[in-house]
Design a protein around this nucleic acid. Structure first.
Lengths: 127, 127
DNA sequence: CTATATGCAAAAAGTTTGCATCTCC
DNA sequence: GGAGATGCAAACTTTTTGCATATAG
């Protein structure tokens, strides 16, 4: 793994929530790195291909990435305010998705589940 | 509601699955309409603002729309092959999402859930 | 020396906006 | 005539690609 790719991964590890490629690029430049935006995109693609980071799409269509602690299948509880994300598991959801797919004759069933909310800190900040 | 907007909504009603703005534009042009792409985008925005259609993002970041039969909260089982979508409900999922959010001190909890698979028809087509 | 990594600029792809025209009341 | 609808072209945003240079082993 190249130095640049490590830098991107570290920047992702330091963030507690989902970050876009542009966010990470800004983070890295802010701390003095001379990395290019293209390299950030390429590093993120490599990292997501190898399963080292999780990717999802915002409602605006931007791809956001996160270095997750868990290797196994999990979902996220994401704060709308600060972007902080908590990894959560939902056995009931997994079973439900599988059952729904089977019931309608679908095979190779997968699913995406994300939970959004306002975390306690952000909630306090507003009030 | 203008004629163009009705045309877009009808095109959406005729489709059984999620369609992108570009798809709908192509559909309408194919059937002889002289509608412009801009108008399709504006119609879709209006329709989704008024809650008449559901929107979601593909993994490629494209926005796709669907005219849903149900007004109430529901999710989709979408075929990876043909895009056909079935509206499904998951009380267990709703409760789980709510509980997960509460457990971590999150408020205003919402969630997105989509189930993907290959429908029986598409499965047969490949084999 | 050869393969890979990097970065800049340009290209794609999807979506939005500026603006002039057209339509309906 | 005036408000909203429409369409074209241009602008924008995010992401990818071409290509030449730099770096690693």
């Amino acid at each position: 793994m190249s130095t640049r790719r490590e830098a991107v991964k570290q920047a992702l590890n330091e963030a507690s929530g989902f970050r876009s490629a542009q966010d990470l690029y800004a983070d890295l430049r802010a701390e003095g790195s001379k990395i290019g935006l293209t390299t950030v995109y390429r590093a993120l693609q490599a990292l997501s291909d190898s399963g080292e980071v999780d990717v999802l799409r915002t409602d605006e269509g931007e791809a956001v990435y996160r270095a997750c602690a868990s290797d196994s299948h999990h979902h996220h509880l994401v704060c709308r305010g600060c972007g902080r994300a908590v990894e959560v598991e939902g056995p009931a959801v997994e079973k439900w998705a599988e059952a729904v797919g089977a019931k309608h004759g679908f095979t190779d069933v997968t699913h995406t589940v994300e939970v959004f909310g306002t975390c306690a800190d952000c909630s306090a900040r507003v009030n």
